[in-house]
Design a protein around this nucleic acid. Sequence first.
DNA 1: TATTATACATACATTCATGTATGTATAATA
DNA 2: TATTATACATACATGAATGTATGTATAATA
Lengths: 203, 203
Amino acid sequence: MVRRTKEEALETRSRIMEAAVDVFFERGVANATLNDIAVCADVTRGAIYWHFKNKLDVFDALHDQLQLSFADTILGDLRNDHPHPLLQLERLCSDLLIDLEVNQHKFKVLSILFFKCDYTGEMEHFLHLQNARKKQNTQLFSEYFTRAKKHKHLVADVDTMVLSMALMSYITGIMVDYLRDTNSIVMRKYAPKFMRFFFKNLT
Amino acid sequence: MVRRTKEEALETRSRIMEAAVDVFFERGVANATLNDIAVCADVTRGAIYWHFKNKLDVFDALHDQLQLSFADTILGDLRNDHPHPLLQLERLCSDLLIDLEVNQHKFKVLSILFFKCDYTGEMEHFLHLQNARKKQNTQLFSEYFTRAKKHKHLVADVDTMVLSMALMSYITGIMVDYLRDTNSIVMRKYAPKFMRFFFKNLT
DNA sequence: TATTATACATACATTCATGTATGTATAATA
DNA sequence: TATTATACATACATGAATGTATGTATAATA
């Protein structure tokens, strides 16, 4: 029994979160027990109850982390004033998809969100969060199209919001299908193809 | 305590399945108890254990039912030798999406599959089933494109499988986004728009 | 340096769903 | 019509996860 420093405590907290990712990924959120997570993080349940209110609170932390990372990526990309916004967006989307193949952490967390948890009861709240984020991200996507209009790369009468929603759903679908069956395609090869197809009749 | 006839027994079985849909939809598969389902179906757990092995077996029945219905719809449509396969497929996809808004049962079951269950442990099996079905349905989709090539509606050098996969993912994404937030769009209005956009550069 | 709050570990009580075993009235069947 | 299998209902034992209460060694702080 040792009293940890504040630094060590923070490290414990993030170890718990990493362990939660692994346990949620393998056992599912509903089926995962706090003891599973504790064992995986090499602590006891006491530690988890110290850092988090309960299992939901752990999930909440993971959820928040991912949601923010997505919006950040887009916002960061938007700061770059690209001469051809459509190509810029095409590249961004392609990269987002390919990142699933590269970034093991994102892959696991997204797999959890799509396939390893049920959004009922207190979990339903997270669907609302996802919807809110989706609307924000759709807005961000439409910004690319608006810029494209200014560059005369896009005819003025297209509905940028419908276009953004379509693109968002397209990406969601590709992600879902990929996460469900990782072996079905190699993202590095197919993501550009899929995206090229979408943007082909725009550029 | 009455002994039911065979007819009544079959009715009991389907009542249990319907109740399961409602309970799974509200409480989630993992969180739903067999007692919840029993109460909802106005029977006891004994009845469920008589008709099904356990909760997973109930889910399996629901899963099977839906999977078959989808393939049937496509196969039935393919029997119709339409003069313009691309428009035929566009219409089919649009109808499939709009059906979510009309058919309450499909809506609930698909919501369960996407958002109310986690595919871990013994549930993982169903992901494999879904992958297998997806491959079959993608094949069926590509049949439309192959026919379109014969009609010279599609240039010969496009990869029909990639096109089918893209379309499949597109539909998946639209479904997921719609099921997650039913109020975001009116399918009757947007499904044709989304589909038109996809087929615009093909037709 | 004395005190206090921290960062956990340990122990316990409660709840609750599951599977199974058993009971039983009555269709089905011969 | 007698028998048997059916279609459930009821009762019970088991296990397991949760939340909390309590213990404690030591950073932090004054």
